[in-house]
Amino acid sequence: MPFDPSMLFMIVILVLMFGMMWWQSKKAKKQQAKVNDFRESLQPGTEVATYSGLLGKIVEVDLEKEQAVIDSEGSRSRWRLAALTEPPIVPAYIHDDEVDEYGNRLEDKASDDEAQKPLDAEDASGDKTGEQTK
């Protein structure tokens, strides 16, 4: 039986396809476990977001019914645990006027200079309290 290179190519392609399917399955299971751990660790006071965009804090959790009550700016609502996710991380915002052309933050020199000066305790008359008046 002669060696057929096209058969070897087919075997390699099949092995790669099964490898990719296995890797994706493993990745999906890991992500699902992370989501389940988050939902099981929900407690009152935990900040959450819903997939529809509502941000709030957990007030009450009922794991048997898979529901949670969220307080969002004084308004309470009941949500299924499947609709909850971790809140988005909001990066610190720095205005373009606060950085130089290289992206380094500009320091406010006036406030830095004042912050570095020692405080001299003066009373209302202008005399320093540490000195005696004659």
Rank of each mutant, 00 (worst) to 15 (best):
E122Q: 09
R78W: 03
A28T: 02
N104K: 05
F38E: 03
P44W: 06
V59Y: 01
L81S: 01
S75G: 01
W23A: 13
F18T: 06
T129W: 03
K57T: 13
D108A: 05
G56K: 07
Q116F: 13
K109M: 12
E122K: 04
G130P: 00
V69D: 00
K65Q: 12
T133L: 10
W79H: 12
L14G: 14
E131G: 01
Q43S: 12
T85C: 15
F18H: 04
A83F: 09
Q67F: 07
E40F: 10
K30W: 02
D108G: 03
T46G: 06
R39N: 03
Q31F: 07
E98C: 13
E64K: 07
E66G: 02
F38N: 06
I58M: 10
G126F: 02
K26V: 03
W23P: 00
I94H: 08
L54W: 04
I89K: 14
E64A: 13
F18S: 07
E101Q: 07
G19L: 06
D120C: 05
I13A: 15
L84V: 02
G103A: 06
W23V: 04
E122N: 05
D71A: 09
D127A: 14
D37H: 03
R78F: 03
N104H: 10
S6I: 06
A68G: 06
F18E: 04
A121K: 06
G45M: 11
E122T: 11
W22H: 08
P5Q: 00
S25K: 09
D97R: 14
L55H: 11
E66M: 09
W79A: 07
S111F: 12
K128I: 05
N36M: 11
E131T: 08
M10Y: 08
S77W: 01
F18W: 11
D62I: 05
V59I: 15
Q32E: 14
H95R: 08
S52T: 11
H95K: 11
T46I: 12
Q24A: 14
D123F: 04
D113A: 15
M10L: 13
F3N: 00
G45P: 08
E66L: 04
P2C: 02
V61P: 11
G103C: 03
D97K: 15
F38T: 01
T129L: 15
M17I: 13
L55K: 09
R80S: 08
D97N: 13
R39H: 12
S77D: 14
